[in-house]
Design a protein around this nucleic acid. Structure first.
Lengths: 340, 340
DNA sequence: ATGAAAGCGCTAACAG
DNA sequence: CTGTTAGCGCTTTCAT
């Protein structure tokens, strides 16, 4: 068992109060006393007990970050960026994954974050805000890309519509006309233009870009991978080619999907971008070093992380502050996958 | 503020003891009582306080995982695999990054894991085991790839020597003769063959493979990127080409390095594998979907994670068990980057 | 079957 | 400048 302040008190002859003060650097303690205490603490390999401290103080200076899957580049880069953003502000980040299942999301919200951590940054999945609210009560939480607009939590959106609009407009401006949007099934514009979930906003961004360029966009302009993964996209692309669908560009609703698409095109001997241009969304590192380097609507991870951190810390410090909703920004990174 | 068991006790008229029993499913409580308590708990949105529980019990069922950088594929995939391995065993995983700096490593060890978590899986960085021991005391910890052999902690090694040996032997067996090992500076065999750090074991694996094939391996067969990153490897490869070094294969000490190398070769119009074959180490997903798909000595992440988890849980349950050292296994994944 | 009470380790009034 | 003490929320003897 690790040493406690009581052990140090015993060893030095001071009270636990004085030891605590000394260890926390309270200027009231005589320097000499403080030195003795610190010496004893070092000698006994004293390590403060976070549970006790957090129980007493009601805070731990720990923030939980729940991403979809730690192994997915978007999640991984986001978790990294949030850790980096919060470190200088005195918070340590604990990252967890929900693996897209509602039960894991519940666990994350219920079991621990909510109890030990001062707040949570939560990448939205299956659970709806109302369901989450029942679990988290008044604990500070910020949602990334909530599946529906909410005034229950501060929330931040990735720039799905505008990012996709910019990327698809770029494809159209380079002369592409037969675009396949890879990621989600076609739904009529009227049914989705006011939805805020990731799939819908990205799809409407694509539709708006086509419409503004006078290019038709219908069910034949979409393809649906089983999942937004490299394999899912690879298989979906192969199916597309087997069906004989004709297209001169694939706009992928995520960079991961784009990597799978390019893999499939390579395997079929289709030149990128000469035969088919490919572009994505997210701005993950893997796109930069893909072959060819992937054009993408790149979310600014650092600023996104900073925004999430700002909102959460504000909520922690000012629980009654008005709920805010923000949208992250992006940069259209034009690389060789669309540039001839 | 969240409801406590005292609130439930007040609401139901039972004592906090009974409430606690009921909530934990103690069979002694009358079913009717338990039902009432659970009802009140739900109504009050009760959430147990992890700090209090952990303070009382001396354990939290949380394991800390400290990786180098959450955004790096190897770290990310490992953290993912460990989370998956520990979930069914009743442990939640908190992932953190050390960013290769000793001070962050200290923070991770000192500030929190060590205090709130029941144990730590630690990817070795700057700190030496003795230094770590001073901080962690008797808290359960398992090291991945310690920089030097240690009997202070259970430890697991990635199969650096054997994996590289297999991969380089494969390169040689396909007729390659002028191999550049990209990742670490040349050091004479005698000076490193008994070291156990990642760089040394991988380099000796390469040397042994060459020697056994009767191929010379000297300082000219190595190249050193500034870091084991895509950019570092890209730049190092460009320098190599600018210098006019001749080679027909690059063996990269990590897959991430390999991706940077292939990027540079593409940019210079060098065909892979026709002009130069490329192979790596790790087995990250990105290698599978790279162009061309990367041959690599693939660590079995799931089994590595299971081994780390096994050792840590054993240490938690049996603190005095003898220290163990294990080595993970690998599979040589031969893909197009070396196959003509 | 339920309750009273102690105590995990720590911090912060408050007192001296 | 230092000590006494209460109590954060929980679990668990030990009584009843």
């Amino acid at each position: 068992m690790s040493a406690t302040i009581a052990d140090i008190a015993k060893a030095t002859g001071y009270s636990t109060a004085t030891v605590s003060y000394a260890l926390r650097g309270n200027p009231q303690v005589k320097p000499e006393t403080a030195a003795k205490v610190r010496e004893a603490a070092a000698r006994l390999h004293y390590q403060g007990n976070a549970s006790a401290r957090s129980l007493r103080l009601g805070r731990s200076n720990v923030i939980a970050v729940a991403v979809h899957d730690l192994a997915l580049p978007f999640s991984a880069e986001l978790a990294h960026a949030i850790s980096v953003a919060l470190a200088p502000r005195g918070y340590q980040v604990f990252a967890q994954q929900t693996l897209f299942t509602g039960s894991n999301e519940e666990t994350v919200l219920r079991e621990l974050d909510h109890q030990f951590c001062d707040g949570t940054i939560f990448c939205s999945g299956e659970l709806k805000p109302e369901q989450m609210k029942k679990i988290t009560g008044s604990k500070p939480l910020v949602i990334l890309d909530p599946s529906q607009p909410t005034d229950l939590y501060d929330s931040v959106y990735t720039p799905g519509h505008d990012g996709v609009y910019a990327a698809v407009s770029h494809l159209l401006s380079t002369g592409r006309r037969r675009i396949v949007a890879m990621g989600v099934a076609y739904r009529p514009y009227e049914r989705i233009h006011d939805l805020t979930d990731v799939s819908s906003t990205r799809l409407t961004g694509c539709m708006d870009a086509c419409r503004d360029a006078g290019v038709a966009f219908g069910p034949d302009n979409t393809a649906v991978p089983a999942q937004w993964t490299v394999e899912g996209a690879y298989d979906a692309t192969m199916r597309l080619l087997d069906e004989g669908r004709e297209f001169d560009a694939v706009y992928c609703l995520s960079d991961t999907v784009a990597i799978g698409v390019m893999h499939a095109l390579h395997d079929r001997g289709i030149a990128i971008p000469d035969d088919v241009a490919v572009a994505g969304f997210d701005g993950i590192e893997a796109g930069r070093s893909a072959f060819p380097p992937l054009t993408t609507a790149a979310v600014d991870f650092d600023r996104l992380a900073a925004t999430l951190a700002d909102l959460l810390l504000r909520r922690i410090e000012t629980p009654d502050a008005p709920i805010e909703t923000r949208t992250a920004n992006f940069t259209l990174e034009v690389r060789s996958s669309t540039r001839q």
